[in-house]
Amino acid sequence: MNSVVQYFKGIADGIWSLLKGMSVTNRYFFSPGKIVTQKYPNNRKDLVMFDRFKGDLIMPHDEKNEHKCTGCGICQINCPNGSIEVISKTITTEDGKTRKAIDKHIYHLGKCTFCALCVKSCPSDALAFSQEFEHAVFNKELLTKQLNKPGSQIMKGV
């Protein structure tokens, strides 16, 4: 007799547990307000990334086309993957002194692992991350970027 009770109890418990699961999914089907996905390419305009989001390495320039990079190369030393190449040159300032300055700050996006050691170790805060995340390109060479803009100069007092 006990086994018969067990048999029917098993059926009832089983069906009850299945109904509980179905009630959850059924509830979600009838509440479209709970949809969490976003229509990504359509919401590009109002898509806000977090301000610390590590999208792309940039060198911020001010409106006078000046940056803070001194060309010291510490970022290059700290980078674990060799994704930064600092090519420096010697320039002569107005008062006749020669000093080291940046010629090209090359950044290989394809090698970067976004560990943020370059940004953290930069003594003059010349590097930062941007919120840009659409990196797909058709040509591999486009992933190699020059971070200092053409004709840019170092900011005074850095």
Partner: peptide
């Protein structure tokens, strides 16, 4: 149906 159950939009 499966998209709405799974809090998605499905084909759109």
């Amino acid at each position: 149906v499966c998209a709405f159950i799974q809090n998605r939009l499905g084909p759109n």
